[in-house]
Design a protein around this nucleic acid. Structure first.
Length: 300
DNA sequence: CCGGCTACCTGCCGGC
DNA sequence: TGCCGGCAGGTAGCCG
């Protein structure tokens, strides 16, 4: 379940290892992965022969700028991996759906058992064509973020990325006060804040001492500042440890290395265990059809 | 406009 | 031992 820290880990690895290389050939063996395109053939025609100029991230999306104004966009979904390989002789994992042959040398493969992940080539909007950028992005994102959204229309609906410029606590306060929804629903709504999913929302809310079901507009200024700080701190710490790799899922970076942040999880997946702060039992509830872990004593 | 529900998928695990 | 239901959850699309 790659969320922002896992996607950032992949981005950083590919910034070192993919940028500057040319995609000589692409092979697509599961068309569902490129479902935004009319055909796999169309997708191949758009990527083959292109060089990769940069590796960026917006929320949980990877954005690789091509040498022709277009961008290759990748979302890992629930179980997607981008894996480097030395060449075609390296054994292909099951569920390898796309293989890029790179120049110089090697391959980049997209492996995704559950096929919730996808990739597509985004062409810049035609001159004069306007792109509707999400109102939460407009509210707080600086020039780069807005420009990036305008360049990739498919991602223009995304809200604030927690690491984008100009994401101050006062702007964040305006976002929270504009909704009456439960905090967890706000944190995981990609059109408001992008990059946070089920695991990190629970960890962030525990760090902030706030319950998942607190109405977002009910927070005091101090609570808003605490939540704002917790978002940055938890995600930064998770990135430092290469993201989280849970026992039942298989996140690894492009070199096949798992993350280690799971050992620092305070509440996620710890139902019945002692809260690290008060030693009371961590509770698990189903919220919006998803598991939510929290400490009823430390979070209010 | 907004919130809530479901479909899309495969692997894994517990129960029978 | 084998089958089957439930669960995992990110996003898009639909509906009220």
């Amino acid at each position: 379940m790659p969320e922002l820290p896992e996607v950032e880990t992949v981005r950083a690895a590919l910034a070192r290892d993919l940028v500057g290389k040319k995609i000589k050939a692409a092979s697509v063996t599961n068309g569902r992965v490129v479902r935004r395109h009319k055909s796999a053939k169309e997708f191949r025609a758009l990527v083959e022969g292109r060089s990769v100029r940069s590796a960026e991230r917006l929320g949980k999306y990877l954005v690789f700028a091509h040498d022709n104004q277009a961008n290759l966009v990748v979302h890992l979904g629930m179980s997607g991996r981008l894996l480097r390989a030395k060449g075609p002789k390296d054994p292909k994992p099951k569920h390898t759906h796309v293989v890029f042959t790179l120049s110089p040398g090697g391959e980049l493969r997209f492996v995704d058992p559950r096929t919730f992940g996808e990739m597509f080539v985004s062409s810049p909007p035609a001159p004069g064509e306007t792109v509707e950028v999400s109102k939460f992005a407009r509210l707080s994102v600086g020039g780069d973020g807005l420009a990036r959204r305008a360049r990739v229309p498919e991602l223009a609906h995304l809200g604030l990325d927690p690491f984008e410029d100009q994401y101050g606590w006062d702007r964040f306060a305006a976002v929270l006060r504009s909704r009456t929804t439960a905090l967890k629903a706000v944190l995981t709504d990609q059109d408001i804040l992008c990059g946070i999913g089920n695991i990190y929302s629970d960890e962030i809310l525990f760090a902030a001492g706030l319950r998942y079901d607190r109405p977002s507009e009910s927070l005091s200024t101090i609570e808003i500042r605490r939540l704002h700080r917790s978002i940055t701190e938890v995600l930064t710490e998770a990135i430092k440890h290469g993201g989280s790799t849970l026992e039942d899922e298989q996140f690894v970076d492009p070199e096949g290395k798992p993350g280690t942040y799971q050992q620092f999880h305070q509440v996620y997946g710890r139902e019945g265990q002692a809260c690290p702060q008060c030693r009371g039992p961590i509770e698990r509830v189903t919220f919006h059809g998803r598991s939510t872990f929290f400490c009823p004593r430390c979070q209010s």
